[in-house]
Design a protein around this nucleic acid. Structure first.
Lengths: 117, 117
DNA sequence: CCTATACTTAACTACATGGTTGAGCAAATC
DNA sequence: GATTTGCTCAACCATGTAGTTAAGTATAGG
């Protein structure tokens, strides 16, 4: 629980770079090697490799070494943590979603509860 | 649209620091002056002031100067942008929320659409 | 076996960040 | 009017970040 605080530091820092966000966008479609992740960017392979490392250290990506290629896969658990943090502020930016929530509560409280846990 | 990319850089970077996240947590309860924001932390006022500045530059906080005090208010629009970005990955970390969505769609698509816009 | 491929690591540069102290300034207060 | 208060700004330091190139390692393929 307390560890999540440190997680959030690393996760938000990893997300603060457009190259890394783009990499995650690619990984959302399919698993990719470090080389494949690097190609879209005008950057050395070593540079891209460092970005992958940051994503990995943040727990956003896991790596499977197969032969000489490193296959990267999106790991969404930490994104969920970040989202959970943001959710605490959700009512600040939209009364509409509050309405949606209350609508849900009104319709079937038990069903929603089951979905949440 | 494209500007939001730069927004995200600043917003995620601002959120990557635990002091700043804590400040936002305080501002979620009530508006606070820079001094009030600074007191919980073992840090000089100038240091805290720099954190406030980062939050302000990211658009997460607005400042109202009244006399010699600077009142800070949480500005959630940019948090919403960050949340919107994370939402694109939501189905990766929970099939349960997907179910919630489809449940909504099944129940009243038109109503939900209205709520979203 | 030799070479090309897919990476990582190390060393380096340039700049940003998080913190400090000290000075400055404008508004409250005495 | 003098002083305290609330804050910013500037200068500085240590560390971190994003990028580079060059070298090293290990696998795949001729």
């Amino acid at each position: 629980m307390v560890e999540q605080i440190a997680h959030l530091d690393a996760v938000f820092h990893a997300l603060a770079d457009p190259t890394r966000r783009a990499m995650l966008g690619q990984l959302a479609k399919r698993e990719l090697t470090v080389g494949e992740l690097a190609t879209p960017f005008s950057m050395s392979l070593a540079g891209a490799s460092k970005h992958v490392r940051v994503l990995e250290n943040a727990g956003l990506v896991t790596r499977t070494i197969r032969g000489r290629t490193h296959l990267c896969r999106l790991e969404a658990a930490r994104l969920a943590e970040a989202n959970a943090w943001l959710r605490r502020y959700q009512h600040f930016w939209t009364a509409k979603l509050d309405t949606l929530e209350s609508l849900l509560r009104a319709e079937d409280l038990a069903k929603v509860k089951k979905l949440k846990e």
